[in-house]
Structures are given as structure tokens and as C-alpha cells.
């Protein structure tokens, strides 16, 4: 690989626009947010250095700890989405008339956008008489409607369900590609060895999908830890009753853009950076181990 240039500047000129934009929109903000995290800044007056005060405040900020707990709880989406997406991939990995239609259908939530979907989910879980309440009442599971999106215990699980529902079609396609790379011979051999259909998938599909599983785990944990849209839309921008749905990114947004505590919000942002850094390191390790 590699070709000699006649003009030594050529490669740099090709890279220049990208690097300039990177410097302005990624590197500078990174340095800037790190600096701001050591200041008190409310937009109106210039930032004032306050040392570690913001970080000290974070330590005793109950809502911040709650938001951390919620973001980590949100990681439960990953195993759920992996299991569902594999099952769905197995279901659509067969020659049936109209199978393309089903695949497309499961993909629609992926491209629809979180606001419209969030609104649809608000309707479903409406507290005064949404269909979910209606069906639960009809089945006799509950005696009176649950105000799902207001009662503190429900908003986070509903948001997690929504994330899963929105993402599962996407991961289904990833797993479908993985399944199609597994040789038919293996399934035939399993059949001869007397595996039933479920064993067949457990002993062949799941191990065969290992690379895809690691890959999906990596991207879905990284996006789960940064969840914002679902909470924002489902709670009408409030973060839920008693902060019951507040995640780290939601708290960052609230402190920075609702309360104008820019310095404090920057400290939250730095915590987010440390978390994603830690996750990236774990992920790189996972990917490396897989290559062995």
C-alpha cells in the first residue's frame, strides 16, 4: 500500500477540510468543555474559575447520582435487544413468500424518528385510557388505570421498551447477515446428530453469531448510556415525575440549557466522557479477544 506523490503537500490538502472541521467542532469543544467544567458560568457573565467546586457539588448531588443509576439501568436494553433481534433474525432467515415484506416492516421503526414514535407511545400508555390500560383492565390484570408516564416507577422501563422496539429491526439485519454467513453444512450435521430446531440454533446459530453479538453489544451499550430522545419525548421535556426518568445526558441538557448552569453542566459532560471512555476501552478489549 502507498503511492509516492509528486507533490508532498497533496495528502495534507486532501485531509485539510476534514481536519479543520474536526479541530473546530470536536477538538476545540473538548478542550473548551474541560475548561468550563472548572468554572462558574451562567451565560450572562463571563466564566469564573472555581477549581473543583463543580465536581464537589456533583458528589453530593442526589439527582446526578440518580441520573447515573438510570443510565446504567438503561444498559439492560442491550441483552434484551440482542435476544429479541436474534430471534427475529432466525424467524426472517428463511425462504417464504413475502419474507421481504416482513423484514421491511420490522425495519420501519428504525427510520421513523424518535418524536413521532414517542408520541405514538404516549398514546399507547396514556394514563386516562390509553389502549394498554384498556387491555390490562379488560384482562383483569389491573383494577384501575395506571398513570404510566407520571408514576415514577414506569417511565424508565417504558423508555427502555421504546428503545428496544425502535432498534430491534436494525440489529435484526446485522444478525441476519451473520446467520447467512454460517455454513448450511453445520446445520445438516446437527440434524444428523439429532438436534431439534431449538438445539440447532443454540449450538450453531448462537456461537456462529458471536462476532455480530459482540459488535451489537458494543454499539447498543454506547448508545444506551447516552440516551436522551426517548426520555425527552415521553416526559414532555420534564425528565419524569421526581426526576424518575432523568439520565446523564438529560441532566446535562437540563443543567446547561434549561437552568443555564453551564459550568456545572460541563462537569456532567466530563463525567459522561469518562464513562464512554471506560466503555470504549472495555469494548476494544472485547473486540481484541474476539480476534484471537
Amino acid at each position: 500500500m502507498g503511492i509516492k506523490q509528486r507533490n508532498r503537500l497533496t495528502p495534507y490538502l486532501f485531509l485539510l477540510p476534514a481536519l479543520a472541521l474536526m479541530a473546530i467542532f470536536t477538538l476545540y469543544p473538548l478542550v473548551s468543555v474541560a475548561y468550563l467544567s472548572f468554572t462558574e458560568y451562567s451565560i450572562l457573565s463571563p466564566p469564573q474559575l472555581v477549581g473543583l467546586e463543580n465536581y464537589q457539588r456533583l458528589l453530593s448531588d442526589k439527582v446526578f447520582w440518580l441520573s447515573l443509576r438510570h443510565s446504567f439501568t438503561y444498559l439492560l436494553v442491550t441483552p434484551l435487544i440482542i435476544v429479541l433481534a436474534i430471534m427475529l433474525a432466525i424467524a426472517v432467515n428463511r425462504k417464504l413468500r413475502g419474507i421481504g415484506l416482513f423484514r421491511a416492516l420490522y425495519y420501519i421503526p428504525v427510520i421513523t424518528g424518535s418524536v413521532a414514535i414517542g408520541i405514538a407511545w404516549q398514546f399507547l400508555f396514556d394514563g386516562t385510557g390509553g389502549p394498554v390500560n384498556g387491555w390490562l383492565l379488560q384482562l383483569g390484570i389491573i383494577a384501575k388505570p395506571i398513570i404510566f408516564l407520571v408514576e415514577p416507577g414506569y417511565i424508565l422501563p417504558i423508555a427502555m421498551m421504546m428503545t428496544t422496539w425502535m432498534g430491534v429491526g436494525y440489529y435484526m439485519v446485522v444478525f441476519l447477515a451473520g446467520l447467512q454467513a454460517i455454513s448450511y453444512d453445520l446445520y445438516d450435521a446437527a440434524k444428523i446428530d439429532g438436534c431439534n430446531d431449538i438445539q440447532k440454533h443454540w449450538y450453531i446459530s448462537v456461537p456462529g453469531l458471536r462476532p455480530s453479538i459482540v459488535f451489537v453489544a458494543v454499539i447498543s451499550t454506547l448508545s444506551a448510556i447516552k440516551v436522551f430522545d426517548e426520555i425527552f419525548v415521553l416526559s414532555n421535556g420534564t425528565g419524569g415525575m421526581l426526576n424518575s426518568g432523568v439520565t446523564v445526558v438529560f441532566y446535562l441538557w437540563k443543567q446547561a440549557f434549561k437552568l443555564q448552569n453551564v459550568g456545572y453542566a460541563s462537569a456532567v459532560a466530563m463525567v459522561l466522557l469518562v464513562i464512554t471512555l471506560a466503555f470504549s476501552i472495555i469494548n476494544v478489549r472485547l473486540l481484541e479477544r474476539q480476534e484471537d
Binding site: M22, Y28, P29, V33, K226, V249, W253, A265, L273
Partner: peptide
């Protein structure tokens, strides 16, 4: 350097991005 920027969450850049 490019690889490293992949790790930076976009949300992190919103505060300085807003000021810019």
C-alpha cells in the same frame, strides 16, 4: 486522532458548540 474522536460523544460538544 480520527479514531479517538469516534469516542467523543456528540452531546459533549453541545455546550461549546452552542457558544460557538
Amino acid at each position: 486522532l480520527l479514531l479517538a474522536t469516534l469516542i467523543v460523544p456528540a452531546e459533549l460538544t453541545y455546550i461549546p458548540g452552542y457558544l460557538l
